[in-house]
């Protein structure tokens, strides 16, 4: 079998196994823990007949394995249940909100990775310059200040004291008309249709939240990248390359950066997952209408279907990120291509 195909199949199998496990955990947490969904769903004033009727309607009177089977079947059909607050299927609600969160997480990831790349590389190449000190300060600050506190500090600095950022009220100002029938990724839609007013407003609103979110993973990324580059710089292979008197640009991009980046790719997927969790807090501060706001509303209203739906979608995104990185490693690391 072709090694790529073998890798694809084995990773796909792992992905499905993890997803199945996640679904099972979500199911068990919803059913086994003390709160009785039938009582919760019926509301505080329900009589016992109503509770029983709700229980029967939800299939909660059946034995656990039967419920589990029904749950799996409905999930496979894309049925995540119905939200109590909006009255719509959770899947419909999620489809409207996932792009907002993904846009924020992607922007933050791009920001964190490029900053860590530049800072880590500079610090490793110039150990006597200011770069290592700047990195250390950023890492210390980034680990000590929790995400939500950083968001508030940035708002105070750049919305109140030096008003260059917009009010923390969502993804766009009230000025430009919104784009109809888009993908939900505002920056992408605006670029495709040449709507520069929307693009500017969307980027303007993305600025502070994405910086906040980027700081949740930047410290780790920059430390790992710094030490990776330092390792390559002191390796025998790199010393041999330097003896060949190749142009620096070529040494940098062919012999220094790839071996330093490749081991950090798994960290990239991990960062992505960490941000999907962290975005809950960031969205709460910046009034971002994504998964985070949705799940918090769900919790405060006791809307379990919403909470479970968000958890499942996040776990799916996270596992997919690992899957993609694992497969991409095949193209990046030549050692994996040997049979």
């Amino acid at each position: 079998m072709h090694p790529l195909l073998r890798r694809l199949i084995s990773r796909l199998f792992q992905l499905l196994l993890v997803l199945w496990g996640t679904v099972t955990i979500v199911f068990l947490v919803g059913r086994v823990l003390p709160a009785d969904p039938a009582v919760v769903l019926s509301g505080p004033n329900a009589t016992s007949e109503i509770v029983e009727a709700t229980r029967a309607a939800l299939g909660l009177d059946k034995p656990l394995p039967v419920q589990y089977g029904a749950y799996l079947v409905s999930l496979l059909q894309g049925d995540l249940g119905r939200s109590l607050i909006s009255g719509r299927p959770v899947l419909t609600d999620l489809a409207a909100r996932v792009p907002a969160s993904l846009e924020l997480v992607t922007a933050a990831l791009v920001l964190a990775v490029s900053a860590a790349f530049v800072c880590g590389l500079q610090a490793a190449l110039k150990p006597d310059s200011l770069w290592p000190k700047v990195n250390k300060a950023l890492v210390t600050g980034g680990t000590a200040v929790p995400t939500f506190l950083l968001g508030i500090l940035l708002l105070y600095a750049f919305y109140i004291k030096l008003p260059i950022a917009p009010a923390p009220l969502g993804r766009m100002g009230i000025g430009p008309a919104s784009i109809e029938n888009g993908t939900g990724f505002l920056v992408w839609d605006a670029l495709l249709r040449g709507r520069w007013d929307v693009l500017f407003s969307a980027l303007h609103h993305l600025l502070l939240p994405s910086i906040t979110l980027a700081f949740t993973v930047f410290p780790q990324l920059v430390q790992v990248f710094h030490s990776n580059v330092a390792t390559v710089l002191s390796s025998d292979a790199y010393k041999a390359v330097k003896l060949a008197k190749l142009p620096f640009r070529m040494v940098l991009w062919r012999y220094l950066i790839p071996p330093a980046v490749a081991p950090a790719l798994n960290l990239l997927a991990a960062s992505f997952g960490y941000m999907i969790g962290g975005t809950v807090l960031v969205e709460h501060i910046f009034g971002w209408n994504g998964l985070g706001a949705y799940v918090l509303n769900g919790i405060n209203a006791g809307d379990h279907a919403v909470v479970q739906g968000v958890v499942l979608v996040s776990a799916l995104c996270y596992s997919l990120a690992f899957f993609i990185v694992d497969v991409a490693m095949y193209f990046i690391d030549p050692r994996l291509r040997e049979v």
Binding site: I25, V29, L33, Y274, G278, V280, I299, G302, H304, S314
Partner: peptide, 23 residues
């Protein structure tokens, strides 16, 4: 494998999931 599944749910969301039923 249990740890793999456990950690496939981002920490904060795992917390939200459990807190939503545990109170």
């Amino acid at each position: 494998r249990l740890f793999d599944v456990w950690q496939s749910i981002p920490g904060l969301l795992l917390g939200l999931l459990v807190l939503s039923v545990a109170g």
